[in-house]
Design a protein around this nucleic acid. Structure first.
Length: 460
RNA sequence: GGCGAGUUAGCCAAGUGGUAAGGCAGAGGUCUGCAAAACCUCCACCGCGGGUUCGAAUCCCGCACUCGCCUCCA
């Protein structure tokens, strides 16, 4: 298959991917801030990460993925204080819900889900390293990163930062910065806020430091891949580079990848602030299946293009998933059948994904294959070997897609008996009886099809 | 204002110089006791205006519109 190329935000071009250590990929993915339920826009980025991870794995890499859980942050501090809860008490239900949603969407679990509140010492230590190298200063009890001490600042976001004006969008407690571009590493304690007593004084970590501290703790000082939503490019990831490289003097991340946003049906960015969002649990309550939500987020648009999320998109996804399911049933292959995917189709699939994760192209090729074989299944008999090969192709594709169900081909005795009973009724032209049994089976979750080769069934 | 992305059929979307993949929806047909599925046929002058080229959705210039980022939003 062709070499994997990925679009690196830092270079703003496609680059051939090669990990630092051959065969092994160290990947850090920016996870949720657990101040509330995550919405499907957040999960679009997660599914992009899942796609990347699965493609890497299908190409033989051993991937170590770490996803942070941000559980200290302005909104969490404020809301937990309002409800008189500890940070842990406040965030626990949202962390649980997040993991539930990941599971619903069939996202492969990361190796670690480190939490900011559990890594305060690591952050303090990192800030002390920065201090030793002259990158910090203290003002009003807060510790800041001095941008002027890090000439490479801006390499990721490519922003001209000279235009940032003090006071325009700067928090009240940050008036004491030397330069408006400087950012806070450690925030001095404010009255009524949760705080940690540390060598840096009482306070809490700034937003960016947790990702530097935790990613380097679990993955080492140089990561192969770091991902997140495009809105994190600046300032979050830019600041992570300054902090990490300022402390270690080594390249922090080799490939930066960013997912575009999900938009609402009118084309506006989905966000909590605009209240134009839906959560996974909202969609489930409306009757959409997890597989359709996954398919819509995964294949709705290339990860570097915005995706307008709508009911239409979800309905289309339901249809596409159904088509694949039907095809599996039609192949009528035993679960343990062995076969290899057709080489040309497999190559098209793999090559499309290697091309900066072009899953739309890959899925297009897959459906073309499905359609072609469906035609032949209709008009000619297709050998068991070829059907097994097609089945293997679907299995291969599903390593990435993970939306196709491969139901067990064995039925409970009662169901087998009902199917036989219905056949007798049909043979005797007792269609009323036959249809009644068909309805009964449907209620039991078994859909029957009468084909020229006899009756087929699938689980609903 | 600065930087960036985008505009392909009713909807979603691929395509990165050789006369438009795929999915959903729709119309007509085949098959079927009915149903379900599947199959066949039909459905695009690629935002607008110029230019380069034998040839452009694909390259260049201009215009229009949409969206994102520009200090704590994935």
């Amino acid at each position: 298959m062709s070499k994997l190329t990925l679009f690196n935000t830092a270079s703003q071009r496609l680059e051939e991917f090669a990990p630092l250590v051959p065969g092994q990929v160290r990947m850090y993915t920016c996870g949720p801030t657990v101040h509330d339920y995550s919405h499907v826009g957040n999960f679009r980025t997660v599914l992009f990460q899942d796609l990347l991870r699965r493609v890497l794995e299908s190409q033989g890499y051993q991937v170590t993925q770490v996803m942070n859980i941000t559980d200290v942050e302005d909104r969490i501090i404020r809301k937990s204080a309002e409800r008189a809860l500890s940070i842990d008490e406040y965030t626990a239900p949202y962390i649980d819900a997040y993991h539930e949603d990941l599971s619903t969407l069939r996202v492969e679990p990361a190796a670690e889900y480190p939490r900011a509140t559990r890594h305060i010492p690591e952050m303090v230590s990192l800030i002390q390293q920065l201090d030793a190298k002259g990158h910090t200063y203290v003002s009003d009890g807060s510790t800041y990163f001095r941008i002027a001490s890090f000439p490479r600042y801006g390499v990721l976001s490519h922003l001209n930062l000279s235009g940032i004006k003090a006071g325009a969008r700067v928090d009240v407690d940050e008036y004491s910065k030397e330069d408006p571009r400087d950012f806070v590493l450690w925030k001095a304690r404010k009255t009524g806020e949760h705080f940690w007593e540390t060598a840096l004084g009482p306070g809490r970590p700034g937003w960016h430091i947790e990702c530097s501290a935790m990613s380097m703790k679990y993955l080492g000082e140089t990561l192969d891949i770091h991902t997140g939503g495009v809105d994190l490019i600046f300032p979050h990831h830019e600041d992570e580079i300054a902090q990490s490289e300022g402390a270690t003097g080594k390249t922090f991340v080799r490939y930066w990848l960013h997912a575009q946003h999900l938009q609402d049906a009118t084309g506006e960015k989905m966000s909590k602030r605009l209240k134009n969002f839906a959560t996974v649990r909202d969609l489930l309550a409306e009757g959409y299946t997890p597989r359709a939500i996954r398919y819509a987020l995964l294949t709705g648009a290339h990860y570097r293009s915005p995706l307008a999320f709508s009911e239409d998109l979800l309905r289309q996804a339901e249809g596409a998933v159904r088509r694949l399911d039907e095809f599996v049933v039609r192949l009528n292959i035993a679960e343990d059948a062995t076969g290899l995917p057709p080489e040309d189709v497999k190559r098209q699939w793999d090559d499309a994904l290697s091309n900066d994760l072009n899953i739309q192209e890959a899925v297009g090729q897959l459906f073309k294959f499905v359609g072609g074989l469906n035609t032949r299944l209709d008009s000619a008999s297709v050998s068991e070997a070829e059907r097994a090969s097609a089945y293997a192709m679907l299995k291969h594709a599903n390593r990435i897609l993970d939306v196709i169900d491969f139901p067990a081909r064995e039925l409970e005795d009662t169901i087998t008996r009902l199917i036989a009973e219905r056949k007798s009724a049909r043979d005797a032209n007792d269609f009323a009886r036959a249809d009644a049994i068909r309805d009964q089976l449907k209620a039991m979750g078994i859909q029957l099809y009468d084909t020229k080769d006899g009756v087929r069934w699938k689980r609903l």
